[in-house]
Design a protein around this nucleic acid. Structure first.
Length: 254
DNA sequence: ATGTCACAGTCCCTGTGA
């Protein structure tokens, strides 16, 4: 089973790239973030013509998350429920595995209210995962807007006092993985520098100024059968790329 | 340390978010 997560930074703008990429990489399940679409505009037919069932949780201008699968798609859950107005999480069961596609709030700055929202949002996700059926394999993937380790930051000195690396954010991510999830890239390739996001500005991609903030978190049963994880850097190149590259995980059939 | 991109509305530029 091939599983991918990709923040596409507008599925409307990115659809030609996404379509080509699906044909080339042929993931079984792909988790998408920042579709920036209403549900009405989501290209269900486009996915279907490529052999994918898809489900979307959108709000229009901002956010928006989706799951596309060619191994079945059932039991969809959108958002956290009461009072959750931003479309940042969707879950579904595909091929016997429960998938979550997550777009964690950015946080903006340590003294910005949005930062507290980010921590609360991660806590809500942790609560949700803590309540799961422990017999069900789970993949929690997406744009976490947190770089788990200094190795995941091109210049840790420069990020002192910034979001994405602060202790509370890393602790919140640790609480999430503490429910029984493993950061698969850090587990399989612990010494690899594997950035997933590069700012559009300053030629950051070509200068190697990146962060690893897009993650696949998996339960132990899936970790045991994981064979490979890599960043599809080619998707960050060329015409009209997203500022994020996909992360692709491969698993021996479960 | 900000050289870009995408969105909506004020609609061919500007403010916002990343």
């Amino acid at each position: 089973m091939i599983v991918a997560t990709w923040n596409v930074n507008s599925l409307t703008a990115r659809w030609p790239r996404v379509e080509q990429w699906l044909v080339e990489r042929a993931p079984d399940v792909v988790l998408l973030q920042e579709t920036k679409q209403s549900d009405a505009r989501f290209p269900y037919d486009g996915f279907a013509s490529l052999g994918y069932e898809a489900t979307h949780h959108g709000q229009g201008q901002w956010n928006g998350v989706a799951i596309a699968s060619r191994v079945g798609l059932a039991d969809v859950v959108r958002g956290f429920g009461d009072g959750d107005v931003e479309a940042r999480v969707i879950s579904a069961r595909c091929g016997g595995v429960r998938f979550y596609s997550c777009y964690v709030p950015n946080g903006r700055a340590l003294d910005d209210p949005h930062y507290q929202y980010k921590l609360r949002w991660l806590s809500s996700l942790t609560d949700r995962l803590a309540q799961r059926d422990v017999n069900e394999p789970v993949v929690v993937g997406g744009d976490f807007n947190v770089a788990p380790r200094d190795l995941d930051v091109y210049d840790p000195e420069r990020f002192i006092g910034c979001t994405h690396v602060s202790a509370p954010e890393r602790e919140a991510l640790g609480a999430l993985t503490g429910t029984g999830l493993t950061d698969l890239a850090a587990f399989l390739e612990p010494d690899d520098v594997a950035y997933t996001w590069w700012d559009y500005r300053n030629g950051s991609f070509h200068r190697g100024w990146g962060l690893r903030i897009d993650l696949l978190l998996v339960t132990a049963d899936l970790r045991a059968v994981a064979t490979r994880i890599y960043v599809d850097r080619d998707a960050r190149k060329g015409i009209k790329p997203s500022d994020h590259a996909p992360v692709i995980g491969e698993f021996a059939t479960t």
